[in-house]
Write a protein that binds this DNA or RNA. Structure first.
Lengths: 213, 213
DNA sequence: GTATGTGAAGTAATTCACAGCT
DNA sequence: AGCTGTGAATTACTTCACATAC
């Protein structure tokens, strides 16, 4: 049942994990998998697997499990994996460049088609498949290249300004690597990836030595 | 009241954000801040700010708010920011190199002191402050350099093996960039950062156009 | 017998709301 | 008057458990 059941964001995220696993399984010519097995391979509970899938329909066969090929196809459709997504990176420092070179994106239909930087020395340089452009060209390039996702990989102090430019250019989804709390309209979805914070949080768990879970 | 109240992991993570903000505020010579203001600057609810702090003590003054300098000092102590953490990166590809060059870590007391790669051509190369070593030297180097956090930045297929080596070498905290479900003992804390998945999840929200929150 | 799909139960995290302090 | 600290209420998410289907 696909209609409005209020789907946790985590469920969406996990569906992509199931899809990856299913891609592996079909490559290995494994035809069928149970929620318990799929859960084991993804470090998740079997009930969670079933519930996550349940938000979108009924894909399994009682007593038998899921047909890997069928479920893979269904998830690809649900998750928009039949489409290719155009992505732009703002900030061509070490992190931005690493993202431009990261093979995992293209493999998953996420195409980085534009990169921008404010530093004149970087403009015109070619990294992987794209040429770094001036920030001034951002609005036009975003339009022309039909970019739907923006990645912010600039220092924290510049992040809000960059976010504003992306949004003005029509971007509705932002992956933000800057450790800054962005202020954006309701209609824009931001995902923060804060690398220092992840490490810091780990260090805390080390220091208390009361590791949970 | 600091004792065992069961502290959400998110609360720990947010404390690091408050600390950053407080560092800014003290630089600006702002002496006092309310939970509402601090929440506004970090995109969080005022009650959340108070509750998060409440897990560790009473730092505020009724009617007045928090003294920025005092709260900063208190959080530094609680979060172990008086210590320096030694970190090792396994995998010196684009992502690993970007992490080695990422200035945000050192700024926050997270020192990358070792880097490893399996590729003989990379071994011996110097990136930023460290020389890339062979994976074979990992156990010895982890010990000698007193590394407490390991970062996995290798392809998914190698991630489990690397995790095993890190754990064998005594590592209890792992930041994992590989899109792989690691199997680790209970005593080891893993944080997954799955960049493709973050982008994919964003793309989903774009495609349904029902952006939440 | 085996494994799904899903309400119900259980946990966890967030937000409310207000008593109490300055 | 203003703002903290915190139980209570709410909301969100996960896991249980079992009727149902193959």
């Amino acid at each position: 049942m696909s209609p409005n059941k209020k789907i946790p964001e985590g469920a969406i995220s996990r569906l992509f994990v199931y899809l990856r696993e299913l891609t592996e399984l079909t490559k290995l010519n494994i035809r069928t998998i149970s929620s318990a097995e799929l859960g084991e391979r993804t470090n998740l509970n079997d009930a969670q697997v079933r519930k996550d899938l349940g938000y979108f329909g009924q894909f399994g066969v009682s007593g038998a499990g899921y047909n890997t090929e069928e479920l893979k196809t269904a998830l690809e459709k649900i998750l928009g994996k039949d489409k290719i997504w155009n992505v732009a990176v703002v900030g061509a420092g070490h992190l931005g460049s690493a993202l431009l070179n990261y093979p995992g994106f293209k493999e998953r239909g996420l195409n980085i088609v534009a990169a921008f930087d404010a530093d004149a020395r970087k403009i015109g340089k070619r990294v992987k498949d794209v040429t770094i452009q001036s920030i001034d060209e951002l609005p036009k390039a975003i339009q022309e290249k039909k970019v739907s996702i923006g990645i912010i990989a600039v220092p924290a102090k510049d992040a809000q300004e960059v976010a504003g430019k992306l949004i003005k250019a029509g971007i509705k989804c932002i992956l933000n690597f800057a450790p800054a709390a962005l202020i954006v309209p309701e209609s824009v979805k931001v995902k923060d990836v804060d690398l220092s914070r992840e490490l810091e949080t780990l260090s805390y768990f080390w220091s208390i030595k009361r590791l949970l879970k």
